[in-house]
């Protein structure tokens, strides 16, 4: 038993602006994201990338402009945060069941939960409590909870930011595999340029509330980090991020 492909849904933004009071966070955002694409969103702290993500899955509303995302009307958008946000008093299985929403129980729901747990590599751990899992495992549960309702749009807000380096590499491969299996549209905010290039079909760089770079990544998957093509793309993004300040680049 495994999860069936769910497919993705498109997101389109036309001249989108978001302001909190007089503080303009995003301005003039025009984006067309086709169904099933993996989009990495990078930028410095406070550049507005998380706000963009929240807009695209309906956690915030636009101040002006048009946001069109069919997944929002179909309640088929989900989010994974940097922290797993699991209920400590609920088993792995019950935490995943939270993702099914109200009144969804019984055999069909159980099967869906079991399939998605297998997909994220947690088969056999259904009965454990979150406190009995490692950080990476907890994030897998959070991913399963987000995916169990078969969303067509998945937002990931620095999903691997709290994990150690080795677990991150592991989880990047898992994330890529799950996305390839299920086919949802993925929007991932990250502060790690390497991660953005490794996973994204496309990398969007946000600076001061605007899209300053929209780069297609045309490398075969799974991607190898050491290759010159990979490094060239990374360099291009870092150049745009830090301009010509070599010390800042070195630090990154």
């Amino acid at each position: 038993m495994s999860s069936q492909p769910t497919g993705g849904s498109r997101v389109s933004l036309k001249d989108v602006k978001k302001a909190f009071g007089s503080n303009v966070v995003l301005q003039g955002i025009d984006l067309e994201i086709p169904a099933g694409q993996f989009v990495s969103i990078v930028g410095k702290s406070g550049c507005g990338k998380s706000t963009l993500l929240r807009l695209m899955i309906g956690l915030d509303t636009v101040t002006s402009g048009v946001l069109d995302a069919p997944a929002l009307k179909e309640q088929a958008a989900r989010i994974v945060f940097q922290e797993p946000r699991l209920l400590p008093w609920a088993s792995v299985k019950d935490n995943v069941a939270v993702g099914l929403g109200e009144g969804q129980s019984g055999q069909a729901a159980d099967q869906q939960a079991a399939a998605i747990l297998e997909e994220v590599g947690l088969k056999g751990r259904e009965g454990l409590w979150p406190s009995q899992l490692s950080g990476g495992m907890r994030q897998r549960v959070a991913l399963a909870r987000a995916l169990v309702s078969q969303p067509t749009l998945l937002a990931l807000d620095e999903p691997l930011g709290a994990l150690d380096a080795l677990t991150r590499i592991d989880m990047q491969a898992l994330l890529e595999g799950v996305w390839q299996d299920l086919g949802f549209t993925a929007l991932m905010v990250t502060h790690d340029v390497g991660e953005a290039v490794a996973l994204g079909d496309r990398v969007i760089l946000i600076d001061h509330g605007q899209v300053v770079l929209d780069l297609a990544v045309d490398l075969p998957r799974p991607r190898k980090r050491g290759t010159p093509e990979f490094a060239a793309l990374e360099g291009q993004i870092l150049d745009k991020l830090f301009g010509d300040d070599p010390r800042a680049r070195e630090a990154h």
């Binding site: 956690l59 309640q75 989010i79 945060f81 922290e83 946000r85 209920l87 008093w89 609920a90 939270v98 993702g99 929403g101 109200e102 909870r145």
Partner: peptide, 25 residues
Amino acid sequence: PQLIEMGRIYGMNNRTLFLKVILPG
């Protein structure tokens, strides 16, 4: 509060939020 936000995002109504998140917490 992050768990409460999570519950709201996953569409829990007040009763479910109370029984599954607030009371056990």
